[in-house]
Amino acid sequence: MLVIGEVHTGLLQNSGEISESTCRQVLGLMAGESVRVSRRPIVHALSPERLTGVDCALPAASRSRIRGVGTVVSRCAVTGGRVAQGSSYVRVVRSETDRRLPWSHYLSRPGVVEVLGKAKAADLAEGFTGDPAPGCLDLGAVSGRFLDLVQASPLLDRRAPFKIPRTSLRWVAETGEPSIRFTLHTEQERTLRLTHPGPFTPAVVDLCEDLATHDWLLTSLLVIVERARIGATPGAQAVARLAPAIDHLMHLWMPAARVEEWLTPFWESLERRPGFTRQWRSLVDRVRDQVAMNTLALLSATAEAGRR
């Protein structure tokens, strides 16, 4: 019917970026399963997947009661040794019966939630990206706990260079005529509606996680630039407040780095409107200009002092 998921993204709670080998330990969430690491064009580490059992109402825009039973797939990721994610999703399918089956039935279909009774995909898609009622399937809570697992790792020193809220991206993917809709809600909440050609594959999840990473980077850089109060505070002070962005964020922008080729057109269309990279570049330029101007001011002050 459709696939729904939620990604939570935050700053890894460590003073500096962590090495690939530390990533492997932090993300080793399951004995006997290795962490998958790719190094090009940016180090990206992905934990083994784990399942969570659910039996509850699914969010429906019509508020009709739709019961789903099955398992949620979750995993954690660390990008550039700096950005941490907890990500969960389920494939929603119709059940062949309208009663709950033995648990082992659902375990043999990992990541599938079966709907008991009638449901319309559009109703669920609207409900999930709208305002889900309490008591409905809460993928955000599951993802949040997986992100907690990473952040609470004893290998992290919890001395992050700046404080920043997590963001959440709730997504719905369906098969059909290609389209993508990215919506900002509150400061930390985003939704994504994606219609892709052909059947669902986990590559769609990679795309959503990649978008979430970059949206978080952009959101965080905006916050840091706002906190610096460029123009309202002395140059040196503003530059000092911009420093964490330079040290920890600015090299992480790698849009569509891990997106399969057939899905890159979705990224490209978001680059045209709203233009993620355009906004990122302009912010990065602003930060660099501030640093350059401040350096010039310092240099001329030093020269002045030398002449005297």
Binding site: M30, A31, R50, T52, G53, V72, V142
Partner: peptide, 26 residues
């Protein structure tokens, strides 16, 4: 060097009672 029991323990997925919506840990 292989802890089979740990391996299986990490693969346990609790059978959820009705009204388990994921909002709280099992």
């Amino acid at each position: 060097g292989v802890e089979l029991a740990r391996l299986v323990e990490d693969r346990l997925v609790d059978d959820p009672p009705p009204e388990t919506d994921g909002s709280r840990p099992p």
